[in-house]
Amino acid sequence: MQYKDIKIQNRLDAWLAFLGSDDPEIIIDIIERYPDFKEMYQQVYDICRNIEEVMGMFSKELLEMDRNTVELMIDEMQDEIKQQKETIQEKDEALQQNKEVIQQKDSELQEMQQKIKELQEELERTKGLK
């Protein structure tokens, strides 16, 4: 809290003061007006007194964050792999179509070569007859 002289007029003000102040006078004022804050303050106070417990709490949170980060990375990698598989499949399909076109063109080329050969043979026969 930036100003110590702010008056707590309602429960919202009490929450803001409770979460933002470590001034004992303000905390006492809150607890006197709203007794249910006493249990919460006691829990916070106990945790602060037991630094080992606080560090254990942070260690557990960091471990959970690490797990979540790993899961997120795995999910992202799986999405990327899926996208790459789709891209590969599309390229494979395009490649297959190109192969079919090439095979068709090869067949046409062979037919044309056969026709050319036949025409050359016919041309040679006609030259031989003259």
Rank of each mutant, 00 (worst) to 15 (best):
S107G: 12
N98G: 09
K130Y: 14
L62M: 12
E108N: 09
I26N: 00
Q103A: 12
L119H: 00
W15T: 03
T87Y: 02
K82Y: 13
I27H: 00
R125P: 01
R125G: 02
M1Q: 08
D66Q: 15
V101S: 02
A17Y: 00
K60V: 03
L123T: 07
N50M: 11
P24C: 06
I26W: 02
V70D: 12
I26M: 00
M65H: 06
I102M: 06
K117P: 02
E80A: 15
D13Q: 00
M40L: 10
V54Q: 15
E122V: 11
N68E: 07
L72M: 14
I31S: 14
A17T: 08
Q42G: 12
E121H: 11
G128F: 15
E93R: 05
I30P: 14
D92C: 12
D22K: 06
E76F: 04
Q89G: 04
D5N: 09
M112Q: 10
N68I: 13
E111W: 04
T87E: 07
S59I: 07
Q84C: 07
L63V: 04
L16W: 07
N98P: 05
P24S: 14
I88L: 07
I51W: 12
E80D: 03
E52Y: 08
I88Q: 04
N98D: 02
L16V: 05
M57K: 14
D29M: 00
R11L: 12
D29H: 00
D13M: 08
Q114A: 03
L109Q: 01
I51A: 14
K7Q: 03
K117F: 04
K7C: 08
M77D: 02
M77C: 14
K7M: 10
M57D: 07
K130H: 13
